[in-house]
Deep mutational scan, measured.
Amino acid sequence: QVALSRTQVCGILREELFQGDAFHQSDTHIFIIMGASGDLAKKKIYPTIWWLFRDGLLPENTFIVGYARSRLTVADIRKQSEPFFKATPEEKLKLEDFFARNSYVAGQYDDAASYQRLNSHMNALHLGSQANRLFYLALPPTVYEAVTKNIHESCMSQIGWNRIIVEKPFGRDLQSSDRLSNHISSLFREDQIYRIDHYLGKEMVQNLMVLRFANRIFGPIWNRDNIACVILTFKEPFGTEGRGGYFDEFGIIRDVMQNHLLQMLCLVAMEKPASTNSDDVRDEKVKVLKCISEVQANNVVLGQYVGNPDGEGEATKGYLDDPTVPRGSTTATFAAVVLYVENERWDGVPFILRCGKALNERKAEVRLQFHDVAGDIFHQQCKRNELVIRVQPNEAVYTKMMTKKPGMFFNPEESELDLTYGNRYKNVKLPDAYERLILDVFCGSQMHFVRSDELREAWRIFTPLLHQIELEKPKPIPYIYGSRGPTEADELMKRVGFQYEGTYKWVNPHKL
């Protein structure tokens, strides 16, 4: 086992960053958080920038500027975001240094004079007029057009580079997404736009490419001749908990499936790229999406959770019991969808996408189930092999396979070949997804960000279904809070070829 401390991990990262040409360590950078008073800024962006600063992973002359409508001070920003920093008493001095680099400007999102004030403020910072500028839009999409237009007109660096990070949702359907994309691309070049999907920053999602293309053993079996089906799962054990009003506007397909799960599907299904260059990788992902037809209604199961009468606390409440959810809402909190990649490698292999709230566990994984062994000599005792990439929690890679049961006879039983990170790298604290992705933006690497043509294809696949749901308002199937979801989803999976045995229990190697 390799035991690495946080300091050692960050030392390795620093070495990698400083050796590259793309990370300008000594240049002045300004990180501007648009929507600095909001939840995302408070819980994710400010803490992430602090962790990067604490670990010495930001360029040395980096300033952080918050911008929002609320009249706040840096002290206010500190008060609301610091509880999420997880700072230790030993880091007190470092924390003071961090907040000394912070400033805040209040202004409207659609007022040109406010942006001119913001620009004057940035120019007044040390070497601010020639600094590289990175704008993070932690804002609702309704203000994107006004904000990007004003940034472009008043706040661009004339000497350094300018980059803009856009948070999902990128529209509600193909038409609104196209409108937003066309607007942003009329102001910024594609190499300046970073559409963030934080799932692409997760260690195991990034590991998929290495697993596939750096190991000879997987190449020959990664196709329709050997793989019976692919299941991509995202499960949350909690409901909307008072935030249903926002969720109800989008629903589970827009929230998770059309982005996170579809991105994971691309990494499983794509061909080997010409290189690890950002556009070479994204070219292959677009090719996969172009091979997927629009979702067919007979390959869809929609569910909505109801309270568990035997549960406790939140578990007793259904989705419609959330006071922020519109009365009688038919918005799905669970969806199972089957897609097919219609190309030579994957023809006929079902890709089953499942996601839901208020389920029995927290889990995100990719599961490849292989065909049955031909010419069975073990009297149907063999179960199908599976390769599982567990994204969260407890990152893991393992192969479910058959071995001989101890004893006199040739009785096979299920076991696993474990390729888990935790076994080799004991207690290594890896940077989280937002840390990686923000560092990628500083480096100018777009590999783990969504390109406009990729986004367009993703919406093309799901828009007809979303429009049909909005028009017909089908009643989702009720499922109990804390269950596996509607049984109809299991029946759909069985119908397209997935075999669920229920006889195997994964042993978490992190707890051995």
Rank of each mutant, 00 (worst) to 15 (best):
P474C: 14
D372Y: 06
A332E: 12
N411V: 10
V256N: 05
F351D: 05
V281W: 01
N360Y: 03
S483P: 04
K426M: 10
D280P: 10
Y504V: 05
V288Q: 05
A396P: 02
H448P: 08
Y305K: 02
V281Y: 05
L339C: 15
D310F: 14
F449C: 01
P476L: 06
R354D: 04
V288R: 03
A358H: 02
Y398W: 12
K429F: 10
V507L: 11
K383I: 14
E413L: 13
M408Q: 09
I292A: 09
F498W: 14
E312T: 11
G311C: 14
E365S: 09
K363S: 05
D372Q: 11
E501W: 09
V391Q: 04
M401S: 04
M257P: 06
R362C: 08
Y500E: 01
Y421M: 10
A364Q: 06
P350I: 01
D372E: 14
L492F: 11
E454R: 01
P326K: 06
F442R: 04
K363A: 05
Q369P: 01
R354L: 00
V373P: 12
C355Q: 04
T503N: 15
P486V: 07
P393L: 04
I292Y: 06
D418K: 05
F334G: 00
T316W: 10
Q258G: 06
G502C: 12
T403Y: 06
V428Y: 15
V325H: 05
Y434K: 05
M270Y: 03
E472K: 13
T399Q: 08
E501K: 10
H379N: 14
R436L: 05
T324Y: 09
L419A: 06
H467T: 14
C382N: 14
G444Y: 01
E413F: 12
P412V: 09
R354M: 01
R495A: 13
G502S: 14
G356C: 02
G502I: 07
S483A: 12
T331L: 00
S329N: 04
K363E: 07
D490V: 08
T503A: 08
A315C: 13
L359S: 06
E457I: 07
D418M: 04
L465F: 14
P393T: 06
Y421G: 00
P393E: 07
E361T: 09
M257Y: 06
D432C: 12
I352M: 07
K287T: 08
T331I: 07
L339S: 07
V349C: 06
I377V: 12
E454F: 07
D440C: 00
R424A: 06
M408I: 09
G444S: 10
G356W: 03
E365D: 09
P406F: 04
W506H: 05
M408Y: 10
F409E: 15
C266N: 09
Y481T: 08
K475I: 14
R424G: 03
R327S: 14
E488R: 10
T316D: 09
N277S: 15
C443P: 06
L289G: 03
Y421D: 06
R254L: 05
N308P: 08
H379D: 14
D418Q: 06
D322P: 02
L492E: 07
D280Q: 12
M257C: 13
N308E: 11
E284V: 10
I480L: 15
A358T: 02
Q381N: 13
D490I: 09
V338F: 07
W346G: 01
I477E: 07
L320I: 10
K357S: 02
K429Q: 13
G356P: 04
I377A: 06
K475N: 14
I377F: 13
N277K: 10
C382K: 13
E413P: 02
K505S: 15
E454P: 05
A297G: 15
Q304F: 05
E294Q: 14
T403D: 03
R282G: 00
P474Y: 10
V281S: 06
I292G: 04
V366F: 08
K429L: 14
Q468M: 10
H379F: 11
P406G: 06
P309M: 13
E435K: 08
L339Y: 04
Q468S: 14
G313M: 13
Y425A: 06
G311M: 13
R460Y: 05
Q296K: 15
S452N: 15
E395G: 11
P323S: 13
G407K: 04
G422R: 15
N394C: 07
M408A: 06
R354S: 03
L437E: 05
R354G: 03
M401F: 12
E386R: 03
V341N: 03
N360F: 00
V306Y: 12
I389F: 06
C355A: 13
G356M: 02
E271L: 05
P326Q: 06
L492M: 15
G502Q: 11
T399P: 01
S445R: 13
Q369E: 02
S452M: 04
R384M: 05
V306M: 15
A335M: 06
V388P: 02
G311A: 11
W346N: 00
T330L: 10
I480D: 14
C291K: 14
K285T: 04
D283V: 00
E312K: 12
E395Y: 03
K357A: 01
V256D: 02
D255N: 00
D255R: 04
C443K: 07
P476M: 08
G328H: 15
D280W: 08
D279H: 10
P309E: 14
H260C: 01
V391K: 04
E472M: 12
R484L: 00
I477F: 14
R451M: 02
C266I: 05
A332H: 06
N385W: 03
G375P: 11
V450E: 04
E344F: 09
E312Q: 13
Q380W: 10
K290W: 05
F334I: 00
T503R: 11
L439F: 10
C355V: 10
D453Q: 08
R254E: 00
Q369G: 06
K272M: 10
F378Q: 05
A458M: 06
E457A: 09
Y319R: 01
T399H: 12
V281Q: 04
G356L: 04
H467P: 07
N360T: 07
R354E: 00
R354W: 03
G422Y: 13
Q499P: 04
W346D: 01
Q258R: 02
A269I: 06
Q304H: 05
L430V: 09
S329Y: 01
V301C: 12
I389S: 01
K363N: 08
R384N: 08
D322L: 05
A374K: 11
R282C: 01
